[in-house]
Amino acid sequence: MSKVLKYSYDFEKGVPVMPANASARKNKTGTWRIWKPEINYDKCVKCKICFTLCPHGAISWKGKPVIDYTFCKGCLICADNCPVKAINFEREVK
């Protein structure tokens, strides 16, 4: 269907500028996952390496590492680099 476009001039909305307020949080990249990493807190020595190396900021540090599965893409860099192998992973998609 075709339509004629009519916009009114808007000084605020018409300029391509956006606030840096992490609005990308509405993109649920967790749905990309094939493998799901899980932290075994009994083995975790709280070295902070997984938190530092997560490329997508899906691991936050709350005294211990916490994976946010809304955003975790399942790259498994955390699991591969944990010095005590405290992160297990399972195939989420069959």
């Binding site: 938190f51 490329p55 997508h56 946010d68």
Partner: peptide
């Protein structure tokens, strides 16, 4: 690694490839 600040100034929901080193460098 204890000295790495906890706050992230770039958050989740990015369209980068899983395991992207470029995003890690920016973070």
């Amino acid at each position: 690694f204890k000295d790495v600040p906890n706050k992230n100034l770039i958050e989740g929901g990015t369209p980068t490839c899983p395991g992207c080193g470029g995003e890690l460098g920016l973070k």
